[in-house]
Design a protein around this nucleic acid. Sequence first.
DNA 1: TATAAAACTTAGCGCAAGCTAAGTTTGTGT
DNA 2: ACACAAACTTAGCTTGCGCTAAGTTTTATA
Lengths: 154, 154
Amino acid sequence: MSPPDDRAEEARRHAERFQRVRAAHQTEVAEDYVELIAQLIDETGEARVVDLAGWLGVTNATVNNTIQRLQRDGLVTTKPYRSIFLTDAGRDLAVESRKRHDIVREFLMALGVDAETADIDAEGIEHHVSDATLEAFATYLARSTNTATGRRRS
Amino acid sequence: MSPPDDRAEEARRHAERFQRVRAAHQTEVAEDYVELIAQLIDETGEARVVDLAGWLGVTNATVNNTIQRLQRDGLVTTKPYRSIFLTDAGRDLAVESRKRHDIVREFLMALGVDAETADIDAEGIEHHVSDATLEAFATYLARSTNTATGRRRS
DNA sequence: TATAAAACTTAGCGCAAGCTAAGTTTGTGT
DNA sequence: ACACAAACTTAGCTTGCGCTAAGTTTTATA
């Protein structure tokens, strides 16, 4: 009498995985925005709606909507017609996301993927990489960097 | 006078990447559904709304909605109160997705990620892996398999 | 400094993907 | 064969995230 039970259990765990992916989806946009806002502030001194729109490939109206939501969720602050700032929470998320993004991108390149493709895929993959997997990526990266600089592999 | 141009060009390419990720998002649900439908038909003989709901962790009503959309998009066929079938297009997409999914999962495990985490992450990552990256994963996999079976590296 | 351009906001729309609650159909078991 | 349970559908709601079009504010320039 275990086959049906096993099957039900398998279904339950499958469902759990999907729920996690759906949850990850809900933070993707937020991560992309704060990551970009941090970058813009860093490189140009401020983050404006029009710049975000240009870098994200959406309209100003869409950016505005999203910024409202991010403000509601405590990740950014802004005032009408003024530029956008990160809260502490927003900055933390930005740093996290950026680190994740960079590791994924460099990992893909270390694996032999061309830079342009690595850029594209990293953008999608970064939001779905657990800490454990990120760790594995970083480990591989460290090893392949050592190899590239001429050191021996054990 | 090239700095501003370069910057604008960088923004344009960044935007393009985001648009691709957004596009990928739109096919994710479809891929997950057809993949699961194929598996259920394979293993149990048929795919029913209630099973999909159980495996996906959503309600019957949600599955129903989605199945309507997939039917509209030519990926499945079904009749009221009857089980669900894949069209040729649906079957093709299912095979594609399954292959992609398996490669990603096995790749992560080869990299040292534990099976449960690999399962979770693969679910999210599979939809964002380009052909080039998948190729790189498969190559790594082939190499590490050879290594594991005792063959020499080069 | 007035006006035109650029930036921003608001209103109102659409679609995807989730939900609950209520109703209908199918299939089983006594 | 009929009643009840399970499966399915429908209606109606919510949120996210995209859009266009129209209006407002800010900024730059003539």
